[in-house]
Each structure stands twice: as structure tokens, then as C-alpha cells.
């Protein structure tokens, strides 16, 4: 299978600070992709570059074979590459219903709005109970559900999740992990940044350790490591 996304030699950063140094990786060849690594080493920055929120200084990002560097975030959403950002800040004063309507804003997603809404409600029945409630009044777990639900409303061809379980209580976290597994089983390929290695090992087929803005190690299917080995890679640097 061809990779749905390939990042080729991307360098990017903020102002004069370079965060990503000639980073390359591929997604969709073997299934879901997991990114992990210490905080502050550029995982979020990479995702922002992929979704068009940040312009790389150099390199190519191919989505479905087409270079999307320089495309607007709107065009990238329009092509079906959907990014759920870290920290579920969302739209604090909009209702869940409003968020779902926004998710279906792009012309590509609009025709599937009703069908996708059904899917989201089936996946997160809790949201239906609070449909008219403002996002700011929801719990962290519920906000994360709204974030992911909004992304599903965008009819993703590739879904990128940035630390979806960050800061959630263990029970809520398990529920959310199960939902993410469901999404994957529904046929949407995923790129997931996570600190929880167990969850990544269960969810993904290919792992990248991101360190100092570059790929330090790639773990392909068949080379599956155990938790201990990964932890030593993590802290060995």
C-alpha cells in the first residue's frame, strides 16, 4: 500500500527558532501510526505543519501523493486530512450542536452531515445528552469527545490526534481509548501522538520516536518491542 501521508525532510519552527530538523516519516503504509517521545521535542509542531497551521521552511508533505506544503489549512481540511489539536480548547462558548455543525462546514463533509452525526452520537452517546450545552461547561473527557466528534463530522480520510488522553482520569481515559479503537475499526487511518505507550502499542502498527525535532527510531510491524525496551529508548537519550 502506498503511504497516504509522507513527510519528506521537513524543517520548521517559530520565528528564528527551528524545532523540526529535516524530519521524515510515512503514514498509512502499514496501518495506524503512533508518535511518541519526550515533551517539547516537536510532535505538536509537526502536526501543525502537516495541517497547514504552520509553514515549513523546507521539505515536502505529500497527502495522497500531492504536495500540500503552502496549501491553506482550509484546503487541507477540504482534502480530508483532519487534525484534532492538543488540549481540547475548542470553542468554549459554542454548544456541542454548534461544534458538530462547524465540523461539517467544508463542502466535502456537508453531504455526509446527517450520517456522520449519527456515527458520532453512537460513538459518544454522552454528547447527545448534552447536545445544547456550552463546551466550557463540559468535563475534560467530554471536551475531548467533542473535539474528536467535530473531526469525525469533517469526514476524515486521515485523522490526526494530538495527545487525546492528556490529563484524563484513568476510567475516562480507558473509555476514550476504546472509542479511538472503534474509529480505527471503522476504517479511518490514524496518526496518534500519545504518552501512553501501552495504548499506542495496541492501537498502531508503526511507531516513531521523535526526539529533538527528528525521528530517532522507527519501529515497523514485525519489529514489535516490549514496553521495557521502548521505555529504555525513551529515556536512553
Amino acid at each position: 500500500m502506498n503511504p497516504i501521508l509522507s513527510v519528506e525532510g521537513v524543517t520548521a519552527g517559530y520565528g528564528r527558532v527551528t524545532v523540526l530538523h529535516d524530519i521524515s516519516l510515512e503514514a498509512g503504509r502499514f496501518g495506524n501510526v503512533g508518535l511518541f517521545g519526550p515533551n517539547g521535542h516537536g510532535k505538536t509542531t509537526l502536526l501543525r505543519a502537516i495541517s497547514g497551521l504552520l509553514q515549513p521552511k523546507s521539505g515536502r508533505i505529500l497527502f495522497d501523493g500531492q504536495d500540500i506544503v503552502g496549501h491553506s489549512a482550509r484546503a487541507i481540511v477540504g482534502a480530508g486530512l483532519i487534525h484534532v489539536p492538543q488540549g481540547n480548547r475548542l470553542f468554549p462558548d459554542l454548544s456541542i450542536a454548534d461544534c458538530m455543525a462547524l465540523g461539517a462546514y467544508s463542502p466535502r463533509a456537508r453531504p455526509h452531515e446527517a450520517e456522520n452525526r449519527e456515527k458520532v452520537i453512537k460513538l459518544f452517546p454522552k454528547l447527545a445528552e448534552r447536545w445544547r450545552q456550552r463546551v466550557r461547561t463540559l468535563s475534560g473527557g467530554e471536551r475531548q469527545m467533542v473535539s474528536i466528534g467535530t473531526a469525525l463530522m469533517s469526514h476524515p480520510r486521515l485523522l490526526i490526534l494530538d495527545e487525546p488522553t492528556l490529563g484524563l482520569a484513568p476510567k475516562i481515559k480507558d473509555e476514550l481509548c476504546a472509542s479511538v479503537m472503534d474509529i480505527s475499526r471503522g476504517g479511518v487511518p490514524l496518526i496518534v501522538v500519545e504518552q501512553d505507550i501501552e495504548f499506542l502499542l495496541e492501537l498502531t502498527q508503526q511507531l516513531y520516536l521523535v526526539n529533538h525535532g527528528a525521528v530517532a527510531t522507527e519501529i515497523k510491524p514485525g519489529e514489535s518491542l516490549d514496553h521495557g525496551e521502548i521505555m529504555s529508548m525513551y529515556f536512553g537519550h
Binding site: 482550509r74 470553542f91 455543525a101
Partner: peptide, 24 residues
């Protein structure tokens, strides 16, 4: 209206607005 909703969204979170494909 949907367009009004988009305006309210941009008012609250610009990055998130980009990520749902609004023409900010």
C-alpha cells in the same frame, strides 16, 4: 445561520477555526 456560526467560532478560537476549514 451557518455563516453567523462561523463568525462566532472565529471569535473564540482561530486555530480551531482553521482546523474545521473556515475561511478565516
Amino acid at each position: 445561520t451557518r455563516l453567523g456560526l462561523a463568525l462566532r467560532a472565529v471569535a473564540q478560537n482561530e486555530d480551531a477555526s482553521h482546523l474545521v476549514g473556515l475561511n478565516v
